[in-house]
Design a protein around this nucleic acid. Structure first.
Lengths: 225, 225
DNA sequence: CCTGTTGAGATTGTAGACAAATATGCGACT
DNA sequence: AGTCGCATATTTGTCTACAATCTCAACAGG
């Protein structure tokens, strides 16, 4: 009997379509509120309506798309209140992830985390960090989510929540340097609590970090718009 | 010629199919690990493979089903570790929901919550409450999730998490009466913290409640199997 | 006897056509 | 001129057929 399991090698159009749709949304070519005409989109993506509809269903599950029966599909439009509530949820989930990371992360993972934090700090000192657009900042939180060994929280954060938050196009929201330095300091505190195997402290520190970031972001947006 | 097809409802077939599939899983007619042959299932449910596949995609998004390309779809099989991690996530989310409920719930909602808690206590005193199967207990947590005014946490708890947890078929897990009384006491404490508009206390109390429930459940399962 | 291959059967993935429902636009009537 | 109603058009929802892939058992060879 062959033991080979060609799961990874088999490419399915639907998965590619999901990725392409997600890319279209993230690149802003499909903006919040935009309608998705099935036939036209199918032609554009080079697939039939069947696979496209299944891909749409998948993204509906991630709350990126919303369907009203017989009226079509639209890219979700997040209100400011939605953004706030999503970030509240993030505080709860990342706090718990950080608690578990303090219990579960290996020393090697913690070392890698310090490297990431150091790179972020370096960028801040160079004055070139856009906190909410940086891949590095996302990496920092991603590493902790992975370190929690909680696949359910990790998938929720990485697959669902982060893409939803990116809908708000926070790119270009510039943090004043003094604020960015506070962020860097918080990163170090978080790592210290994880390294000290202090779950309570790790959770509290991460929650404060997410809360601060949320408060600053919301007040910035409210001031701008 | 024209073939009249019986229209089951004004809703779209796909939504009905999602509901029927979910019911099949919850009723145990489709058990964890079971394969879902598309053609056969489509015949059983009286729909074509197209709508069925879209319904399956929807339930995939809720993590109730898992698909491996070209190999079919199966009902998700939760390990004991999965159950523990899901309940850890629940602690974080319900804790935060309870915090927000303490800030947002109306006095009328709090009153309704007290009524639910009273009904639960009454059942306990009659010795007839199966904590983890009771619709009343689910109602208690549901009302708090609604009271949080956080639709994202509420949908995650009610639409995704609760059905996943029900996969474990905790029906019939009998709580000793003295334990059930502790549960009832915790319910009252939670309501008191909400009524006192004490977010910190409400979150801490709810988290302790969920944590205790998790610990008891896991030790019961580990002892049994 | 075991191993690896190969082909038939079954199942999943995709495409295109048909049916149902909603939106649009024109014309008639008040 | 405005509004109601009907017919048309567009879009979504569903079905059937076809193609691609996997499974499994039979079988040839070592």
């Amino acid at each position: 009997m062959t033991i080979t399991k060609p799961i990874l090698s088999s490419r399915v159009m639907i998965d590619d379509t999901v990725a392409q749709l997600e890319a279209l949304i993230m690149r802003g070519e499909l903006q919040p509120g935009d309608r998705l005409p099935e036939q036209q989109l199918a032609n554009t993506l080079g697939v039939s309506r069947g696979p496209l509809r299944e891909a749409i269903r998948t993204l509906e599950g991630r709350r990126l798309l919303e369907r009203t029966p017989h009226a079509g599909v639209r890219v979700v439009q997040l209100s400011l209140d939605d953004l706030e509530q999503l970030l509240v949820m993030r505080e709860a989930l990342e706090g718990m992830a950080c608690r578990q990371a303090a219990e579960q992360m290996t020393v090697h993972e913690i070392h890698k985390l310090r490297e990431t934090a150091a790179r972020i700090e370096k960028l801040i000192n160079e004055g070139s960090l856009f906190i909410f657009s940086g891949q590095l900042d996302a990496d920092f939180h991603l590493q902790i989510a992975i370190g929690s060994r909680n696949q359910w929280i990790r998938r929720l954060l990485c697959e669902d929540l982060y893409s939803l938050l990116r809908l708000y196009r926070l790119h270009g929201v510039r943090q004043p340097d003094n604020i960015a330095l506070v962020t860097a300091k918080e990163h170090h505190e978080i790592i210290d609590r994880i390294h000290a195997r202090d779950p309570d402290g790790a959770e509290q520190t991460m929650r404060a970090h997410v809360r601060h970031s949320r408060d600053r972001l919301l007040s910035q947006i409210r001031a701008a718009g």
